[in-house]
Nucleic acid binder design. Structure first.
Length: 576
DNA sequence: GCCGTTTTCGGCCCGACTGTTTTCAGTCG
């Protein structure tokens, strides 16, 4: 059982307790425990063995014991008891935007609804509006919520798919008959959401490899096990397809199965002009009907007169043309990133102490890290008042004396409905790095929202705008903005736009990055928005997004060494 | 249920917003 699985159980317990209207603080305790475990670098099993589980912030005596039971027995009595009272299916209702514990409870108790299908049916029959606390508008909102939820449901987040795929690949690598193995499909292109998990491998003994694959631990269902393809469902419900080819056509197959469809079409067009034909089996000379190559991707691209194209670019958005002209970007990589510029600590709503954040930063090889705790107006996130700012500043100063990783004193401001900010400029001037973000008031008009952000950018102390469009993948649409105007002004005021690397945000998204850079020359910064030390590993998703947005190291603030970073940040203050 | 430079008991996260209301409940962050 993985940490994320344990976290899921704790989250389910929290939801059940909420539906049962138990002490809200207890509900939150379970949520906090879940969040502490999700993304915790060490496996719970190891923590248990070392007796360190209770040392994790947010996990006390009671939850530690329950987790222990879950790990050792594979089930938890308390959880099973709760399931008797709250059918697990009801929890799914709470995944729908605008449906929380109270509405889920009413829906279940009054109308006997426990599935999304039943809910939709009740909406069609206009039954919801008859319930106390529901009305016509709510009915409509929930219906829209269901559509959004379903659309998000069809695809899974990259952050869910990637770790599982990597784990399976590691296991297969350990099997003797496996020669080569790689991710393929949208997973290899690092798309923000993934339809199927595709893995490609080469071997001389396909049947044996497929047998090994279908018999991996945690496989709950085998959908197919033939000569060229094995398909399984894992315990957590994720499906993985393994395709098996010979070594001779591995490169061609990898190219073909990585896609995208549009990219492959563009390649085939070039091939045709050269009297060649590309398929998953190789590159062929049409006239002679003979295979020319196909063992490596480099060969396939090379024979077309192209350099190898990095998978994140393979979306049919001009990469083939750029490659032909030798104008492919030198993409930013994880190793270019010198620090995380958006991390929350226990001084607002994060779960990690500054010491832990510094330690992880060291492990990641960073030069610096910016603590961007929430500002005072965001009470819900324990936004820092002036005293807390003072206290945090003292800790930062003392830690900075002996630390190789420099801690930047940052803040994530809240852009109010009128575009004003939490503190006076006098206070803002104390910070090394200032982000301003919208956290509420999403229902304003496009113009109002745009003006809000523009006003925040005009402030000489605001270095960056956080999660600009506010989307939550599968849960919340981006709010309407005049992006052209914002990009233009961001560039003019030298305000950096965040590439928020939290897996369900990835905001700005890849397409906007490319657009903002090409059309307006915008600059960006990468931040994980981590609320726990383990979440700092989300940087890879932000970097992938940057790559998919064609960004180079020079486009990104935190590829700069500390001194240059500080100079860049100083520029706006002295200029505006 | 967790946690402690006020506390081992008694606090914890509360403001904005929407839709349902006519003074408030539920959701979201």
């Amino acid at each position: 059982m993985k940490n994320d699985d344990v976290a899921k159980v704790l989250e389910n317990i929290a939801d059940m307790l909420a539906i049962l209207e138990k002490n809200p603080f207890r509900v939150r305790a379970y949520l906090r425990a879940a969040s502490a475990i999700r993304g915790f670098p060490t496996e719970v099993k190891i923590l248990l063995e070392e007796g360190k589980l209770k040392e994790v912030r947010g996990i006390g005596e009671s939850i530690a014991l329950k987790i222990q039971e879950l790990i050792e027995k594979g089930s938890m009595g308390y959880y099973e008891e709760l399931k008797e009272k709250v059918p697990p299916a009801v929890l799914e209702l709470m995944e729908i935007p605008h449906v929380g514990p109270r509405k889920a409870k009413v829906l279940f108790e009054e109308l006997g609804i426990s599935t999304v299908d039943e809910l939709l049916e009740a909406i069609e029959k206009r039954k919801l509006r008859t319930l106390k606390g529901f009305g016509e508008k709510m009915e409509k909102k929930i219906k829209e919520g269901i559509l959004l939820y379903r659309r998000g449901k069809e695809r899974i987040l990259l952050s869910e798919a990637l770790p599982l795929a990597e784990e399976v690949i590691e296991k297969l690598k350990g099997y003797d008959e496996v020669i080569k193995i790689d991710k393929a499909g949208s997973l290899r292109r690092m798309k923000e959401t993934i339809g199927d998990i595709d893995i490609l491998t080469s071997t001389d003994k396909p049947r044996e490899v497929i047998k090994f694959f279908t018999e991996l631990p945690r496989v709950s269902q085998v959908l197919a096990a033939g000569e060229t393809k094995g398909s399984v469902v894992f315990e957590n419900g994720l499906q993985i397809d393994l395709r098996v080819v010979s070594s001779f056509s591995y490169g061609a197959a990898l190219q073909y199965f990585t896609g995208s469809k549009e990219h492959n079409i563009a390649l085939r067009e070039i091939a045709r002009k050269k009297k060649l034909k590309i398929s998953e089996y190789g590159v062929f000379d049409i006239k002679k009907g003979r295979k020319i190559c196909g063992e490596s991707e480099e060969e396939v691209y090379g024979i077309l007169g192209l350099p190898w194209i990095p998978p994140p670019l393979r979306e049919g958005k001009g990469e083939v043309e750029a490659a032909l002209k030798g104008e492919l970007p030198r993409l930013v990589g994880e190793s270019d990133i010198r620090g995380d510029l958006h991390v929350h600590s226990i001084h607002s709503d994060g779960s990690a102490r500054i010491e832990e954040i510094v330690k992880i930063s060291e492990e990641l090889g960073y030069e610096y890290v910016a603590l961007c705790d929430h500002a005072q107006r965001l009470k819900v996130a324990r936004g820092m008042g002036l005293e807390e700012i003072e206290r945090r500043a003292e800790i930062i100063e003392s830690l900075n004396r002996n630390s190789s990783v420099k801690i930047l004193s940052g803040i994530e401001l809240n852009i109010e409905n009128d575009g004003s900010l939490d503190y006076l400029n006098e206070v803002l001037s104390q910070f090394d790095f200032v982000i301003a973000s919208i956290h509420w008031g999403f229902d304003q008009t496009k113009n109002e929202l745009t003006q809000r952000i523009l006003r925040a950018m005009e402030n000489p102390y605001v270095h960056g705008i956080g999660h600009l469009t506010g989307r939550i993948i599968g849960k919340r649409e981006p709010y309407p903005l005049n992006l052209e105007e914002i990009f233009k002004r961001a560039s003019e005021t030298e305000t950096y736009l965040e590439i928020n690397s939290f897996p369900d945000r990835l905001d700005l998204k890849d397409e906007y990055l490319k657009y903002a850079k090409e059309e307006y020359g915008c600059k960006f910064f990468l931040g994980t928005d981590a609320h726990g030390a383990g979440q700092m590993s989300y940087m890879r998703y932000g970097v992938a997004t940057a790559q998919r947005g064609w960004l180079e190291p020079d486009d990104i603030l935190n590829t700069l060494p500390l001194k240059k970073l500080k100079e860049s940040l100083e520029r706006k203050r002295t200029k505006v």
